[in-house]
Amino acid sequence: MTELSELYQQVILDHNQKPRNFGELEGANRTAEGYNPLCGDRVTVYLQLSGDVIREISFLGSGCAIATASGSMMTASVKGKTKAEAEVLFQRFHGLVTGGPDAPVNPEALGKLAVFSGVFEFPVRVKCATLAWHALHAALDGNRGTVSTEEGGRRET
C-alpha cells in the first residue's frame, strides 16, 4: 500500500473532497477548457488577469481525485503570480509528475505541490495531474476553446 498512499496523500484526498476556488469566476477575462478524451474528464479554468498578474483564478469541472485535487492546488499556488512565474511552476510540476528533464532537483521548491510526487509511479495518471495546468497554460496564452491532452497523440480504442 506504500505507492498507493504516496499517490493518495491526505492533502490530495482533502482537496478532492473540498476543492478550493471551485466554480465560475465573476469578472474573469480569460478562460480555457482542458479535456482528456481518454476518460472524459473536463476542467475549465477562469482567470482574472491584470496586466501580467493572475489576480483571481478558479476552476470548474468533473474528474478523478488526482485531477480535481491538482486543479484545486494549482489555483491556490498561482494566485498572485505573474504569467512567467506560473509557466515556470507548470514546467517544474510537469517535471515532478513525469520525472522528465524539468524535474526539480529539490521538490520542496514546489511547496505544497510536492505532494503530487507519487504520480510519477503511475504513468497513466500523469494526464490527470496535468489537466488543469494545460487549461491554465491555454488561458494564459489567450487560447479560447478546448485544449486536449491527446492532441497529436494516440487514442484509446
Binding site: A65, I66, V124
Partner: peptide, 14 residues
C-alpha cells in the same frame, strides 16, 4: 459514490 472510476481502477490494479 464520490470516487472517480480512474481512482477505482488504479487502486484495484495495485
Amino acid at each position: 459514490d464520490g470516487v472517480h472510476a480512474h481512482d477505482v481502477g488504479t487502486i484495484l490494479d495495485q
